[in-house]
Computed example of a mutant assay.
Amino acid sequence: MELCQHLTEARTEDPPARTPQGCEECLAIGARWVHLRRCLSCGHIGCCDSSPNRHATGHATEIGHPVIASFEPGESWRWCYVDNVMG
Rank of each mutant, 00 (worst) to 15 (best):
M1N: 09
L3C: 10
C4G: 11
C4H: 08
L7M: 09
T8K: 15
E9F: 02
E13P: 00
D14I: 12
P15N: 10
A17P: 00
A17G: 00
R18E: 07
T19R: 09
T19E: 11
G22T: 05
C23R: 03
A28T: 12
I29R: 12
I29K: 14
G30M: 07
A31W: 06
R32K: 11
R32E: 15
W33Y: 13
H35Y: 14
R37W: 14
R38C: 13
R38Y: 08
R38S: 08
C39F: 08
L40Y: 04
S41T: 15
G43S: 11
G43M: 13
I45Y: 04
G46K: 05
G46E: 06
C47P: 02
D49Y: 10
S50I: 07
S51G: 03
R54N: 09
R54S: 05
A56T: 02
A56Q: 02
H59S: 06
A60Q: 06
I63G: 01
I63F: 04
G64T: 05
H65P: 03
P66F: 09
V67Q: 04
V67C: 09
I68N: 02
I68W: 01
I68Q: 05
P73V: 10
P73K: 13
G74I: 04
G74H: 01
E75L: 11
W77T: 05
Y81E: 05
D83Y: 04
D83P: 00
V85D: 14
